[in-house]
Amino acid sequence: MSLEDIRSECSDTAALLQPYVDGELGATEQERVAAHLEACRPCRAAVQEQHWVRATLRAVQRDQAPAALRARIVAELDALDQDPAASQAGASTSHAGIPGTLPHADGGRAARGNTHPHPVVRPSLWSRAVATLADVARGGMVMVPASAVAVGLFFVAREGMVPVEPSANLGAAMSSPSVHPSRKQADAPTETSPSAKPKNDLVVAPPRSPMHGGVQLVHARVADDDPHKGASLHYDVLRDGRPTGQRVVDHQVSAGARPPSGIPVVFGGHRYLLDQTAVGDPVLHYEVGGVAHMVVLEGSLARSPSAQPDLPDFSFLLDFADRNIKERAAETP
């Protein structure tokens, strides 16, 4: 290979080196760069240098905000709450520096926090139902299992605000506003027998690291502006009852809308595909009841180097999904 060849090849790969370092490439491009690096010492040195700084910074111990700062901020929030005029004034004056301040048609967001009848005109009964559901879910006041809420939200989104299948679940959600904050804490593993048929995939053993402190549903979103986006549920990962900063996001769309890719495994009798996001967060794909789930674990301190079922993050997600599937099976007659 001549120097000219090397140079041309490097030129072709140059734009991919940085996203390669940061894990922002797809599998094909990632492999292409890796192959180039095998053969090209200068490119390898450049990548090593970037990797080294990245790894060095990631290993650095994080700063902790002083407790007094938190107290000061909470006091400021109290002051704002007690002086609604100031809060209103702030909200209606300059939006400089606040991203995304244009009014938007997110029913759930717009209705956030209105605990009594409010003057906001709702386009329909169902969008009001969705908003209420979303609020209920956000506040942790979840009586029905999260999966039921999600399925309800999903169908509302997909069918233009008309729930077609799980109306019973929606009804249950609407009529059971009791506060059960502990309901979403993960219980002990259930022994429900699996309903799905294993295919010719890698069958994996149950994860050894069961969900530490469980998860808590903190947030539900339905894309009422774009039905194809489906719905998503956000869970905080807890340890000793406190959020760890990690979050599980369960994105749901109609099955078959976007065929997922990944490493196929079978766990608890159900088929999953293991994958990673562009930034290396572990992802689990699975389908149940006509709904395709893409479950992402965000905020891992040490990202898994690859998608393997025995890595803690992936076994955590498998356990999470397994519980949800069984929970849903249990509530379906």
């Binding site: 901020i73 400021e76 809060s87 520096g97 995304g100 997110d106 967001r109 717009a110």
Partner: peptide, 17 residues
């Protein structure tokens, strides 16, 4: 940080879930 949080709280309704 305090200023940023106060601003964030005042404009929390604009955060897109």
């Amino acid at each position: 940080v305090q200023d940023a949080y106060v601003r964030a709280y005042r404009f929390w309704h604009t955060f897109k879930s």
